[in-house]
């Protein structure tokens, strides 16, 4: 056993990278659910974003175009879900599950020619001398731009939901679509916009996997990350700050347990292996338990809205 081999600074830096895809997807889903829509197709949108981003980045040589394409791909797929559930009033749960299956198949098809290809590299943001600060420099100032973007989005989402008129309207739509409709808000339009945003964020999370974290295209490479993102939104009681905590806990414990194994910790590996799931759920449940009220799910979550009803 040699724990000196584990460098805490490197560990924290790694966990930020490992958590980012889930964080992005969960933030998107948070907005979708706050608008009262349950989209279970996060996994499908992530993997579609992963392949769209990869393909465009490889063809154009620009990872930035790749990230844009990933967001577009995720949003288009999400809008398919939006049209089906909001305009054609199909069942959200069934449609969301179908979206995941569709996304997995579609991405495998698009990705046929991209197996074993290397994507253009994404450099870290250059903070100059800041990056050389001991400890803090490695943790805070040596990441790629998407990590910073995801953190900015946490703050942005929190502020937007809490303090802006648009955020208030979105929450109103999610709490009571009839009331929002009666007030003259375009419920369907707002929900479609939220769904598209959710898709774009999931797509970006997927592209982060295929362009930075792994980096390569492999069929089915999200391997359940979308489901983790969905679970984190629920366990985080639909709050942006707790989504960040949940995603970093999950990513952190995952990376930590791999490092502990590599260092030869004498704890049965089975426990280490399940620890990310257990610890994330436990912490978030305990945090929610002191609230008398229910978990804070939007009241109209998953319910069908039609202007005539």
């Amino acid at each position: 056993m040699d724990f000196s081999a584990i460098n805490p600074t490197v560990l924290i830096a790694s966990l930020m990278v490992a958590s980012t895809p889930i964080l992005l997807a969960a933030l998107g889903e948070l907005i979708v659910e706050k608008a009262g829509v349950l989209n279970l197709g996060v996994e499908g949108m992530m993997i579609t974003g992963a392949v769209c981003g990869f393909a465009v980045a490889v063809e154009s040589g620009s990872p930035w175009l790749g990230f844009l394409a990933a967001m577009a791909g995720g949003a288009v797929l999400a809008l398919l879900f939006g049209v089906l559930t909001q305009l054609l009033l199909s069942n959200q749960v069934a449609t969301g599950l179908a979206l995941t299956l569709f996304g997995l198949g579609l991405s495998a098809l698009i990705g046929q020619g991209y197996i074993g290809i290397k994507p253009p590299p994404v450099g870290d943001v250059n903070f100059g001398p800041l990056a050389d600060i001991p400890v803090l420099g490695r943790i805070l100032f040596r990441h790629d731009i998407i990590v910073y973007f995801s953190l900015a989005m946490v703050a942005g989402t929190w502020w937007w939901l809490k303090s802006t008129r648009a955020g208030l309207i979105l929450r109103a739509v999610g709490e009571s679509h009839e009331a929002a409709h009666a007030l003259g808000y375009n419920v369907i339009g707002i929900r479609l916009a939220a769904i598209a945003f959710g898709g774009a964020m999931a797509g970006l999370g997927g592209a982060y996997l295929s362009l930075i974290r792994v980096p390569q295209w492999t069929e089915g490479m999200t391997a359940g990350a979308g489901w983790i993102a969905l679970a984190i939104v629920v366990f985080a009681s639909w709050r942006a700050g707790r989504v960040l905590l949940g995603a970093y806990l999950f990513g952190g414990v995952t990376v930590l347990q791999l490092n502990l194994q590599a260092a030869g910790l004498a704890v049965p590996v089975e426990y280490l292996s399940m620890s990310p799931y257990l610890i994330t759920i436990l912490v978030l449940v305990i945090m929610s338990s002191d609230r008398r009220k229910a978990l804070g799910a939007p009241a109209s979550l998953g319910r069908v809205f039609h202007a005539s009803s």
Binding site: R213, V214, T218, G220, L258, N259, Q261, V269, S273
Partner: peptide
Amino acid sequence: SIIWAYTWFDPAKEADAATALIEQGA
């Protein structure tokens, strides 16, 4: 140094495992 991934296929986890091993000197 041996890491049990408890999966046959999870590219992100496999990449993280490789990174952890490399960071520890492998």
